[in-house]
């Protein structure tokens, strides 16, 4: 009986080796606090296309395996959190430059992120990444569609086995948390976005 279980487990693992494991890189929203920020009394919007939301990317994990995730879909709650920490109202937009929608919702600025990621692992035995980066290239336009602001930030996250055994996505979440906190700091410091 034991040998049957062993062979079954070995076969299952052998078949699964080299494949992509799904992770989720949404950081816990309490890790993007808005403490001390005086809110700007404006409505702002953000635009993430449906193609971006459904985009799945694969990057290296450990032991020859890969990890796959949805960088835009996973990042949307964090982007919403950052903007909600700074502005009195935040709306998700169906289009980046729909003047009728912008006017009807009184949108002052539209934020459009471009997200790139990297990952790798220093472990040959476990698949979750030990190192992860999230780069946010975020631009803002005003109600007329004119570019008013642009900033690129890169967040990094590391995770060792003792930590990621409680959250296989940990390095990615830490990198995402770092990137969005940097973005928030940059937005707060931008005089053109008050």
């Amino acid at each position: 009986m034991r040998s049957i279980i062993t062979l079954t487990a070995l076969a299952a693992v052998a078949l699964a080796s080299g494949c992509a494991h799904t992770i989720n890189i949404t950081p816990p929203l309490n890790t993007i606090p808005g403490d001390g920020i005086t809110k700007v009394d404006k409505t702002v919007g953000y635009y993430i296309s449906s193609e971006q939301k459904s985009l799945v990317v694969s990057t290296p994990g450990g032991g020859g395996d890969k990890v796959s995730y949805r960088p835009y879909a996973d990042s949307e709650p964090a982007l919403n959190q950052v903007l909600s920490n700074i502005y009195s109202s935040v709306v998700a937009l169906a289009a980046p430059n729909d003047k009728a929608e912008l006017e009807s919702k009184h949108v002052a600025y539209v934020f459009t992120p471009a997200i790139t990621t990297t990952s790798h692992s220093s472990s040959a035995l476990t698949w979750p990444p030990t190192n992860f980066t999230v780069t946010l290239d975020c631009k803002a336009t005003d109600g007329s569609g004119a570019a008013v602001w642009n900033q690129k930030v890169t967040g990094s996250g590391e995770a060792v086995y003792d930590d990621f055994k409680h959250d296989f996505s940990l390095a990615g979440r830490r990198a995402s948390k770092d990137a969005f906190n940097q973005l928030q700091k940059a937005l707060v410091a931008a005089p053109t976005l008050k």
């Binding site: 487990a9 693992v13 080796s17 040959a124 476990t126």
Partner: peptide, 11 residues
């Protein structure tokens, strides 16, 4: 080594 480790985890 990795496959053996994973098999151990599975068991």
């Amino acid at each position: 080594i990795r496959r053996s480790f994973a098999a151990l985890c599975a068991l």
